[in-house]
Write a protein that binds this DNA or RNA. Structure first.
Lengths: 263, 263
DNA sequence: ACAAAAGTGTTAAGCGTACACCCATGC
DNA sequence: GCATGGGTGTACGCTTAACACTTTTGT
């Protein structure tokens, strides 16, 4: 595998900066995170990540990484945290990973130039920029890359142990989502094109891990003034048919913008 | 000046990453920002910034930059944004600055090695990490560095035009402060050791640019359960003496921690 | 008719503001 | 006493939750 992989150190990346993506989906009343299992020996899971080209916005780098794993280009994306600890890339972790993958990283001093440079690249200190993305799971067919052995959706409460601080990064992504959801109107990106009020409520309850009163919830959502009510949805079920709603991006962009977090 | 300045390209910094600090203070019912005027010819203002050493946490880099300008070490600090646009360092700006400072940056092709390397360093694309700090203005004696001609507190509504996106960075720092103030309890860092309830209310009104009802404001603040009520403050004024309060860091650290944004 | 889920009404608690009032303080 | 500003009480409106009720739909 070493031979058909282009060496990362050859590419025109910004050095010592990486982007890590928390890709959030929603299904069966649960938030889910798309997590690859990494192509190293031993059980290593880690958030989809990558590097930033010299002439590329960090936002675009995140979009590129997302496109590789999800196959969709138009995703909601938000930068929410920088991991800047100098000792993030802990010595123990590196020793364990490299020790179990000696064919990839063998003895850097005895190896050829390419391996040596990749070793230097990966073992250096990195500053990571955390993004979270909200995607409609129905539109995504998870794609593993050369760096993964598999890629799967995990319920946000049942994540595998990930490398470094990646579990904490997910927790912080969720905290940011909760904090800004009403201002950003981004929750709708987790749902399909049309949805019922109950589906939005279920989603909110999944995000906040608490129940909302059923009578006021529609008022709370409709007050945001970004939903169109469509015709009723007749499912054939023996009960009252709920209305369908659609997120109206045109109307949402007319909201009073505060340039919050926008560059 | 070129001769007594150590060349930035010599130092052991992480390349293409910078830290920018929004240093916020509070006086006369106004939020204020500490802004240096840069030591370039022409009128250039810019946020205090710097670079990150290889073995230094980004948080510590921000603290170091803050200490240089304020002389205090124990400040409230929070990372709130990354500026990652590839074309941030706009061509027009660089041309204008370098054109007006030819003695510093002269013709890079004709100059010595040091100048050439500094030119390369400064004109490359940077990813900036934005921090905001909250400081008690009474404890700060603004210090200009070699890079500044002066440094001053400006009301947040009357900032000078700053380089690049620095004015927008300040706006985003304020937006973040408003969003998280009740969870972070950080507003108290803007006040002196002891303060009256009215002073906290004035501060909140300055931050949010709106008035709060006087009767339940104390309830709102005391509910946070982080203030100690001290003895009354007899000023000699012909009116009822207000109580003094003190922020109790011990009690605030016992709050339910959610690891929000903490690395 | 009946079950199931959608949707609405009633009541109460909590928090916010506006306004009025009382209280302490020094002249 | 009196002006000044700190501190508190009342009335009202809005938001949320718990609970009950009505409405719609297909069997």
């Amino acid at each position: 595998m070493k031979n058909n992989m282009e060496s990362v150190s050859d590419k025109n990346y910004i050095e010592q900066v990486s982007v890590e993506c928390v890709i959030l989906g929603y299904q069966d009343r649960q938030l889910r995170v798309l997590v690859p299992k990494l192509a190293f020996k031993g059980d290593f899971w880690g958030l989809p990540g990558g590097f930033v080209y010299q002439d590329e916005d960090t936002d675009d780098a995140a979009r590129r990484i997302l496109y590789e794993r999800t196959g969709i280009k138009d995703v909601y994306l938000e930068q929410f945290q920088v991991m800047g600890k100098a000792n993030r890339n802990s010595r123990e972790f590196l020793d364990r990973m490299i020790g179990q993958n000696s064919d990839l990283f063998s003895d850097p001093l005895a190896e050829g130039q390419r391996s040596r440079m990749d070793y230097d690249w990966f073992t250096r200190r990195f500053i990571s920029i955390g993004y979270y993305a909200l995607v409609d799971m129905n539109q995504v067919i998870p794609q593993k890359t050369d760096l993964d052995v598999s890629i799967e959706w995990y319920p946000i409460g049942e994540l595998p142990p990930m490398i470094m601080d990646h579990n904490q990064i997910v927790a912080n992504a969720l905290a940011t989502l909760r904090l800004t959801i009403d201002q950003k109107l981004n929750a709708f990106n987790l749902l399909p094109e049309t949805f019922t009020m109950q589906e939005i409520q279920d989603l909110y309850e999944a995000i906040f891990e608490k129940r909302f009163a059923q009578n006021n919830f529609p008022k709370r959502i409709l007050r945001l003034n970004v939903l169109d009510r469509l015709e009723k949805k007749y499912t054939g079920a023996a009960n009252k048919a709920p209305y369908l709603y659609r997120f109206d991006r045109a109307r949402s962009s007319q909201l009073p913008t505060e340039d919050l977090f926008t560059e």
